[in-house]
């Protein structure tokens, strides 16, 4: 298991409380390792070490509805890491130099 250290660092998203966010969270938990979830009033922080992927297919499965990757904008309130890729199928958040 990857440990957080000098080079390995969390990337993460803050998601506003809403049904889509819950589906996104479940999709992230399923598709990534070392996922950390912290809840705050009104929002939830989800983090993974170095890289975090959101797959459209997984989100749709948990949501039980159509979901476009650009709809992440309706749920995400903040993030850290670089948006390394964003297309119709997935979104990748990562640190490039680990």
């Amino acid at each position: 298991m990857t440990q957080v250290n000098e080079r390995n660092r969390y990337v993460g998203l803050d998601l506003t409380n809403c049904p889509e966010s819950e589906a996104i969270l479940e999709a992230i938990e399923q598709d990534n390792e070392n996922v950390k979830i912290t809840r705050f009033p009104g929002y939830v922080k989800v983090e993974a070490i170095n890289r975090l992927v959101i797959n459209k297919e997984s989100v749709e499965e948990f949501l039980g509805d159509d979901w476009e990757t650009e709809d992440l904008q309706l749920a995400v309130t903040s993030y850290y890491g670089f948006m390394a890729d964003w297309d119709d199928e997935h979104i990748v958040l990562q640190w490039d130099n680990v």
Binding site: T16, G42, Q73, V76, S78, Y79, M83
Partner: peptide, 16 residues
Amino acid sequence: SFTTQSDESRHMTLGM
């Protein structure tokens, strides 16, 4: 605050 900050995510991307 949350509707405002949801735009800021895009703004962060511009910055980065």
